Amino acid sequence: GLPPGWRKIHDAAGTYYWHVPSGSTQWQRPTW
């Protein structure tokens, strides 16, 4: 699974990851 606080988001551009507490997003899968 993903580290705490991360969500996987799907949209028209593809899949990305959202860090809910900080509001940051990234294309790379977050690592622990």
Rank of each mutant, 00 (worst) to 15 (best):
1 G>D: 14
1 G>Q: 12
1 G>A: 13
1 G>E: 13
1 G>L: 13
1 G>I: 10
2 L>P: 05
2 L>H: 01
2 L>N: 01
2 L>K: 03
2 L>G: 02
2 L>Y: 03
3 P>Q: 02
3 P>D: 02
3 P>A: 03
3 P>E: 02
4 P>V: 05
4 P>S: 06
4 P>A: 07
4 P>T: 06
4 P>G: 06
4 P>W: 06
5 G>V: 01
5 G>I: 01
5 G>W: 05
6 W>M: 02
6 W>F: 01
6 W>I: 00
6 W>Q: 03
6 W>D: 03
7 R>I: 15
7 R>N: 07
7 R>Q: 12
7 R>W: 09
7 R>P: 05
7 R>K: 13
7 R>D: 07
7 R>H: 12
8 K>E: 15
8 K>P: 08
8 K>H: 10
9 I>A: 05
9 I>N: 02
9 I>G: 05
9 I>Y: 04
9 I>L: 08
9 I>V: 14
9 I>Q: 06
10 H>R: 11
10 H>M: 12
10 H>K: 12
10 H>L: 11
10 H>G: 07
10 H>W: 09
11 D>V: 10
11 D>N: 13
11 D>I: 11
11 D>P: 00
11 D>S: 15
11 D>E: 08
11 D>Q: 06
12 A>R: 09
12 A>M: 10
12 A>H: 10
12 A>G: 10
12 A>Y: 06
12 A>K: 13
12 A>S: 12
12 A>T: 10
13 A>I: 12
13 A>K: 14
13 A>M: 14
13 A>N: 14
13 A>G: 12
13 A>S: 14
14 G>S: 04
14 G>L: 05
14 G>K: 06
14 G>H: 07
14 G>D: 04
14 G>I: 04
14 G>F: 08
15 T>K: 03
15 T>S: 09
15 T>R: 04
16 Y>D: 02
16 Y>M: 06
16 Y>N: 02
16 Y>W: 11
16 Y>V: 07
16 Y>A: 02
17 Y>P: 03
17 Y>L: 02
17 Y>A: 01
17 Y>V: 00
17 Y>S: 00
17 Y>D: 01
18 W>E: 14
18 W>I: 15
18 W>A: 08
18 W>G: 03
18 W>R: 08
18 W>F: 14
18 W>K: 12
19 H>Q: 00
19 H>M: 06
19 H>E: 01
19 H>T: 01
20 V>G: 07
20 V>P: 04
20 V>S: 08
20 V>A: 11
20 V>M: 10
21 P>H: 07
21 P>F: 07
21 P>Q: 07
21 P>R: 04
21 P>S: 07
21 P>L: 08
21 P>A: 10
21 P>E: 13
21 P>G: 06
21 P>V: 09
22 S>F: 03
22 S>W: 02
22 S>T: 14
22 S>L: 05
22 S>D: 03
23 G>V: 00
23 G>Y: 04
23 G>A: 04
23 G>R: 02
23 G>K: 04
24 S>A: 14
24 S>Q: 15
24 S>M: 15
24 S>Y: 14
25 T>N: 06
25 T>M: 14
25 T>L: 14
25 T>P: 04
25 T>K: 15
25 T>H: 09
25 T>E: 06
25 T>Q: 09
25 T>Y: 13
26 Q>M: 09
26 Q>L: 06
26 Q>T: 10
26 Q>F: 04
26 Q>H: 05
26 Q>I: 07
26 Q>K: 03
26 Q>W: 06
27 W>F: 12
27 W>E: 11
27 W>A: 13
27 W>R: 13
27 W>L: 14
28 Q>E: 15
28 Q>M: 10
28 Q>N: 11
28 Q>R: 09
28 Q>H: 13
29 R>F: 11
29 R>A: 11
29 R>G: 03
29 R>P: 14
29 R>E: 13
29 R>H: 11
29 R>Y: 11
29 R>N: 08
30 P>E: 02
30 P>Y: 04
30 P>S: 00
30 P>D: 01
30 P>H: 04
30 P>G: 02
30 P>N: 01
31 T>S: 11
31 T>P: 07
31 T>Y: 10
31 T>W: 07
31 T>V: 11
31 T>L: 12
32 W>Y: 10
32 W>A: 09
32 W>I: 10
32 W>S: 10
32 W>P: 08
32 W>F: 12
